[in-house]
């Protein structure tokens, strides 16, 4: 699976997905507008909350740090929105899964390859401009080199976690046919426990404890704590990465297992 020949078989799924994505320019534009507004709402809400406070730093975040956190949280979530859940479930519902099964490749890996460009395009063509726009408008916390160095692998791991979660949700399509409801629940649960809406440090104790044992904190809270230096020492920083890597591996294994179970249930009627 790691030989170059094998990689050569999955690369075309990535380039095809990238090409397809670039066909829809207006979708990207609308995505940018939506992201700008959503980020603005969050950022200005939090800044308003903070403006009335005079007592210390809640959760240890000062205003520029919190602004950065909230801003990047939205952009990370945007990059993790790789559409794998709706595409997998859509294929199952329409029966197009039949043609996907005719390709001599591992379906989850091909899906991962096809999902990566979506993340990268969202991050660079939508996320980056939005980040620059707000960096120009508001004071942000300047990251340290250490922060950046830790953030990059952590963000990469967050993409794998995000992919695993979405693939598992998509595979739910084999059981329920229509996963709209599952997705709505997933979106809100994941956003909350990832620390995308509220940094986990600001959550009440028991809730924070729950968030820490879930895989979702590796999506947003983990990478941003590393970026902003919100850890007690190298051991804790390494801990964040190790927990992320463990969750990424566990979710990948779970998705692979779920796929093997699901593929035996394929029932494509008609056509």
């Amino acid at each position: 699976m790691t030989t170059p020949t094998a990689l050569r078989r999955y690369a075309p799924f990535a380039s095809a997905s990238l090409q397809s994505m670039l066909q829809y320019r207006s979708t990207l534009l609308i995505g940018a507008v939506t992201a700008t507004t959503a980020v603005g709402l969050q950022v200005f809400l939090w800044r308003a909350v903070y403006a009335g406070r005079s007592d210390g730093l809640p959760g240890g975040y000062d205003l520029p740090e919190l602004t950065t956190y909230v801003l990047l949280a939205q952009l990370l979530a945007l990059s993790q929105a790789n559409r794998v859940d709706e595409e997998v479930a859509g294929e199952v519902q329409r029966g197009d899964i039949a043609t996907s099964l005719l390709r001599p490749v591992n379906y989850p890996l091909a899906r991962f390859a096809a999902g990566l460009p979506v993340s990268l395009v969202n991050a660079t063509l939508v996320g980056l401009p939005v980040l620059l726009l707000y960096a120009f408008l508001l004071p942000l916390a300047a990251p340290t080199w250490t922060g950046l160095l830790l953030f990059l692998p952590s963000a990469a791991l967050s993409l794998v976690i995000g992919f695993g979660v979405n693939l598992l949700v998509g595979l739910a399509g084999f059981v329920t046919t229509n996963i709209w409801g599952v997705r709505i629940v997933k979106d809100s649960v994941v956003a909350f426990f990832a620390g995308q809406v509220v940094p986990i440090a600001l959550m009440p104790g028991p809730l924070a404890a729950v968030a820490h044992v879930m895989p979702f904190q590796g999506l947003v809270d983990g990478p941003l704590r590393l970026l902003l230096g919100h850890y007690t020492g190298p051991a804790q920083a390494a801990g964040i990465l190790i927990v992320q890597a463990a969750w990424a591996a566990a979710l990948a294994a779970a998705a692979a297992l779920a796929w093997r179970k699901a593929v035996r249930r394929v029932e494509v009627l008609g056509g």
């Binding site: 397809s20 066909q23 056509g271």
Partner: peptide
């Protein structure tokens, strides 16, 4: 090789 007349194995947007 397979052709399912009612489904496409081609990339829809390309």
């Amino acid at each position: 090789g397979v052709v399912f007349g009612q489904r496409s194995q081609l990339w829809w947007d390309l």
